[in-house]
């Protein structure tokens, strides 16, 4: 984990318990009583159990889990749409729990922005008025709100739609409005709660590409919630897997794929096309050819899938991996690539 001062979000011992006597349930949890037992004994539901996570700034942190795992509950703690039962929450250096209601509104307005699964656009406002909605709430008034709104509409590819109403747009376009509305806030932290889950598969990939492209320039801290492992692997610089209110594994896509921490994670990654997300670095051996010119080459960061395709096209059993300066960094052998891809 990165040191706290480089983190955008630092969550320590976070508990969220719904029910009549939450504090007592925390004590029971610490004594090792199971969630099922607590539900039976106290009628309390444990939504988040001792969550610890450090999210570095400027990267995409995916939080993945199935429905009911508590991932949406967790992300709503970051802007305190939900208050924790216990625990510490530092976001962008601010102790979120210590904020007064007015300070919290200000914090939400300037430090965070959010994109929602079901878009949550204002149906009675035009697309442009939706994009500048967050800005219009700020006091003092944002003078250049309309210009900023138009800029963001253009960047998400909705130029010319500013006078339409949300109901006149397709789902994918509506979520672009949702994205533009969040980005127009120019806040360092972007929370995306299953933002693309309601979209058709092809549109979803489109939106993922838009997000990745924007993130290249923006370098924001993005917390992306999803139940889709493919989406998690595509977008996440860091991935945390949540199961019934607990984080079961945190790591990069490669770590999750090659070293699943529990059987639960293993069962997840078994279904996925590994070659598409693992990169050549995962399987290459150091370059031993000295300064001799290599034959077939691929750059660092190439996926195994693409490397295998290159090898198949040229009917060779190995390929040389080049680093950023175009000098050989290693060799990927067909056997290693296949062993990593097929499991």
């Amino acid at each position: 984990m990165a040191p706290d001062n480089l983190c955008s979000i630092a969550v320590t011992s976070l508990y969220k318990i719904y029910g009549p006597d939450p504090d007592k349930s925390i004590d029971l949890l610490r004594d090792g009583v199971t969630k099922e037992e607590i539900l039976k004994r106290t009628n309390n539901v444990v939504a988040l159990n001792d969550v610890n996570i450090r999210i570095p700034s400027g990267s995409i942190q995916v939080i993945m889990g199935l429905s009911g795992s508590g991932k949406s509950t967790l992300v709503r703690h970051f802007n305190r749409l939900i208050d924790p039962t216990e625990g510490s929450l530092i976001v962008n250096g601010v102790d979120v729990m210590s904020l007064s209601p007015a300070e919290l509104q200000r914090f939400r307005s300037y430090q965070t922005a959010m994109v929602f699964q079901r878009f949550a656009l204002l149906p009675h406002r035009t697309v442009l008025d939706n994009v500048i909605y967050g800005l219009s709430l700020r006091r003092p008034h944002v003078r250049d709100a309309v210009d900023r709104g138009m800029t963001w509409l253009k960047r998400v590819g909705l130029e010319g739609y500013e006078k339409r109403y949300p109901s006149q747009l397709s789902g994918g376009m509506q979520q672009r409005v949702g994205l533009a509305r969040a980005l127009a806030m120019d806040a360092p932290l972007l929370l995306m709660d299953e933002a693309f889950s309601a979209l058709d598969p092809i549109i979803r990939v489109d939106m993922q590409n838009i997000l990745l492209k924007l993130q290249k320039d923006l370098r924001k801290t993005i917390v992306f919630i999803t139940h889709d492992l493919d989406e998690a692997l595509r977008l996440g610089d860091q991935i945390a897997i949540v199961k019934s209110g607990e984080i079961v594994q945190q790591g990069t896509a490669e770590q999750i794929l090659t070293k699943p921490a529990t059987d639960y994670v293993k069962s997840f990654v078994g279904e996925v096309n590994r070659g598409r997300y693992l990169r050549v670095e995962a399987g290459m051996v150091p370059w031993v050819g000295g300064t001799t010119r290599p034959g077939l080459t691929v750059p660092l960061g190439t996926t195994l899938e693409a490397a295998l395709k290159t090898m198949a096209e040229h009917e060779t059993a190995s390929v040389c991996v080049l680093d950023e300066r175009e000098s050989p960094a290693g060799t990927l052998h067909l056997k290693a690539a296949i062993a990593l891809t097929v499991r």
């Binding site: 802007n79 914090f107 307005s109 300037y110 965070t112 922005a113 929602f116 949550a120 909605y133 806030m185």
Partner: peptide, 17 residues
């Protein structure tokens, strides 16, 4: 719609807003 109300909260709206 509770979703829209939540969005309004998330963007820092006050009660009167």
């Amino acid at each position: 719609d509770a979703d829209i109300l939540e969005a309004s909260d998330a963007f820092g709206a006050s009660h009167s807003q």
